[in-house]
Amino acid sequence: MSGNTRIDALLLLAVAALAVLPLALGLGDHKEEPFAGADAETETAITEIEPDYEPWFSPLYEPPSGEVESALFALQAALGAGVLAYYFGLRRGRRQGERRAGSLRETQPAALPEPLPGARSGAGPEEAGGTAESAGETGTRGA
């Protein structure tokens, strides 16, 4: 269980390191505008490769400022993260519900056909609490 969490933490840590290291090491210092994603500068570039090229279409809507643009990017990330969180939350809740139902039915025999092995090994603290709680419930009921 802790091994699992440790691997997850390591994965996220590695991603964070990959993002932070270029900043921390100042890899963008040689540039006029370090770490720009600068879509606006796009035009310059093509004009330099092909001086007579002119963009023939412009965006229907353009965020009026960098702030609005980053707000919309944040919205996009938030929408995605929200759906992902909903998915995993729902799964976890369902699994707990199933487990509780299973352990209420009898003590705990054939309940939980296959989610058990993976779920057990990967269960977070809350999950462990859930099982303990339902076990307690059956206990009192039995007594």
Binding site: A19, G28, F35
Partner: peptide
């Protein structure tokens, strides 16, 4: 948008 080793995102 993540920073990368080349100094851009």
């Amino acid at each position: 948008k993540l920073p990368s080793v080349t100094g851009s995102c």
